[in-house]
């Protein structure tokens, strides 16, 4: 018997969707599964073991790269979030003024350009500065990460601000709050979920970056993703799966926190 008519039903859509979800998760599940492989290679699964996780933790290069990744992401995301919050306050809830569109374009510019182009541009630019100043530290990576994190931090904060009622601040002002106090006690608490979401988005984007880091880093400045890229191009052992699995776990935790923070409505 033909299925009953339903207003929302489109033939085959559910099948395609389920296929997509299956296809999205199958490689990830296989990847994680093989992280627990006790064998020396990925060719066969010989039993459950945590040896590759242990190996990853003993690998000084992995530990160094992970710490470097976290350090860069923490600094870049913090600076980007502060700058983005200020920019969001400056570009929302106002009559259009001269230069507003220009600001939007500037702040979102890193989103509009393919990463490889930004990477090449920074390579050229920083190569010059390295020659001029002789400085070869992490500052370049942090600066680069901060720049491409700004639009990601900006978007959720701006979205939150735009949905906020500006009469609230006027009410605070009416109740004798100075502009700073109105910001501190009214705007900021309401904006907080947006700022948190922006920070987390920036943090994850920085942590995930491969291309720009690959071009900007000096020798010995591998982050976890560029270290992994280098390894994947050579021989692959289940150690890579173990690192990937841990990375995945962290991403999933951040997504869930982001989801919860962003879904809550005031």
């Amino acid at each position: 018997m033909a299925r009953r008519f339903s207003v929302q039903r489109q033939r085959g859509f559910t099948t395609i969707a389920i296929t997509c979800f299956f296809a999205l998760y199958l490689p990830i599940v296989v990847l994680v599964f093989y992280a627990f492989n006790s064998a020396d290679s990925l060719s066969s699964f010989q039993g459950v073991s945590l040896r590759w996780f242990a190996r990853a933790f003993e690998n000084q290069q992995v530990v160094d790269a992970s710490l470097r990744s976290l350090q860069i992401a923490a600094v870049a995301a913090t600076v980007a979030t502060v700058a983005a919050t200020m920019a969001a306050l400056a570009t929302t809830r106002t009559e259009p003024y001269r230069g507003l569109t220009l600001k939007y374009a500037f702040i979102n510019q890193p989103l509009m350009v393919p990463e490889i182009v930004t990477a090449v541009a920074l390579l050229i630019f920083f190569a010059r500065i390295k020659i001029w100043t002789g400085y070869t530290g992490l500052g370049y990576l942090i600066a680069a990460h901060t720049a491409f994190c700004v639009p990601f931090a900006y978007l959720p904060i701006r979205a939150r601000l735009e949905n906020m009622d500006s009469t609230l601040e006027k009410a605070a002002a009416d109740l004798y709050a100075t502009p700073w106090k109105a910001f501190r006690y009214v705007t900021l608490p309401l904006l907080w979920p947006g700022i948190l979401a922006g920070f987390m988005l920036a943090f994850v984007i920085s942590l995930d970056d491969v291309v720009i880091t690959e071009f900007v880093k000096s020798a010995g400045q591998d982050t976890l993703p560029t270290y992994m890229l280098g390894q994947i191009r050579r021989t692959i052992t289940p150690e890579m799966n173990a690192i990937s699995a841990l990375f995945l776990l962290m991403s999933i935790c951040v997504v869930i926190v982001f989801f919860v923070v962003n879904r809550k409505r005031v």
Partner: peptide, 22 residues
């Protein structure tokens, strides 16, 4: 408002847009 958005604009200009012009 310009003063507030200055840090973000400078960061993007210094480490994204400026290098593109180079």
């Amino acid at each position: 408002r310009w003063l507030l958005s200055l840090p973000a604009l400078l960061i993007v200009l210094a480490a994204a847009t400026g290098p593109l012009l180079i």
